[in-house]
Design a protein around this nucleic acid. Structure first.
Lengths: 189, 189
DNA sequence: CACATAACCGGAGGCACCCTCCGTTTAATT
DNA sequence: AATTAAACGGAGGGTGCCTCCGGTTATGTG
């Protein structure tokens, strides 16, 4: 990830982030063919800056997606630091719904990334599984969650929300779905 | 097909055809992102004319493909009128290779058609199967071709060329392949 | 703190494409 | 030959892409 994100000049990093978040907004709510000029303007930045950070449209979309993926991944550790593991997992599932929503929104644009030879989903599985594992196993260690299933089972259960037909209440239904799963994961009694 | 191709004014039909053949040329040899201005110029026609005939890029690409499909389909009857059925089938296979080549060339552009909700391949199977059937069954009736296989088997055999890795000599190898198939279809002795 | 300088910023500008609009041409009809 | 509805063509206005470079700013040094 962020090759030199660490040694970047402060303003450079700021702009990079503004661009990513604008791209996320516009792409998810307006589709794959937003103009890059529009993204730059929305970020309050010149087009030159955009092109310096992301030489191609695909680079921008891919980076936006990977950022979102990282947010999801890193969220696990943060939640785990502040809550009992089972509650952390429950909250993390809400994060997961948000991730799923943006992924849906970006789908069209990501399609284009793949068409130009990219592979944006390469680390998705790994990262997500890593997060689930850390949360779930912590829950087991704390005696709050069942021992007869493993993290992959949990992940498969969560992935079910991708199969649901979308509609205006998709997020709500997904959350319900995941809450059900969560209840199933706790110890009886 | 050609909704009112029959009652169109002569110049209109001429231009329509010039446009289709130019589109075929340019799309197959330059890829999916040729400019429509370029297509019009290549056809020796104003852009206005292009847009009148094909309101969207997708409409043009789809029409070009369907034209090619029709050419293949209609070729069967023509060949059958001029040659013994087995020879007609052999010649038709050459037509099929040409069709396959253009289909490969258009693949990228057709991908876009599908993305905008089109279904260019809907009638492909039917039309091709219809052509094969007429040729093959005529051959059987004339006693030149085997009786223990049917037109669908022939079609499956021909479809094999789509599985071959492409390269500069793809057309040649495809023809060889089909000639082999053709030999297998004739009666022994 | 002031200065130097390397890194970064912004957006004007040139180019290509898209698509519409309307004055002109032409095929078909009588 | 005259009429007219249909079709033509391409100029033009709008938009997006991407580069280039004069101006700005963060950061390390004296």
């Amino acid at each position: 990830m962020g090759s030199g994100t660490k040694t970047m000049r402060a303003d450079a990093r700021r702009n990079r982030e503004k661009l990513l978040s604008s791209a996320l907004d516009l792409f998810t709510e307006q589709g794959a063919d937003v103009s890059l000029d529009a993204v730059a303007k929305h970020a309050g930045v010149g087009v030159g800056t955009l092109y310096r950070h992301f030489p191609t449209r695909e680079a921008l979309v891919e980076a936006a997606y990977l950022t979102e993926l990282d947010r999801l991944h890193d969220g696990a550790a943060e939640l785990l630091a502040e809550h009992p593991a089972d509650e952390a997992l429950a909250r993390w599932m809400d994060l997961f719904v948000e991730y799923a929503m943006t992924k849906r929104g970006l789908a069209g644009a990501l399609q284009g990334v793949i068409a130009s030879g990219g592979d944006p989903y390469r680390q998705s599985r790994t990262k997500i599984l890593e997060a689930v594992t850390s949360l779930f196993e912590a829950g087991q260690a704390q005696g709050a969650l069942r021992d007869d299933v493993d993290a992959e089972d949990v992940w498969r259960g969560m992935a079910g929300i991708f199969a649901m037909p979308d509609g205006p209440d998709w997020p709500q239904r997904s959350r319900t779905q995941l809450r059900l799963l969560m209840d199933g994961l706790r110890h009886r009694g």
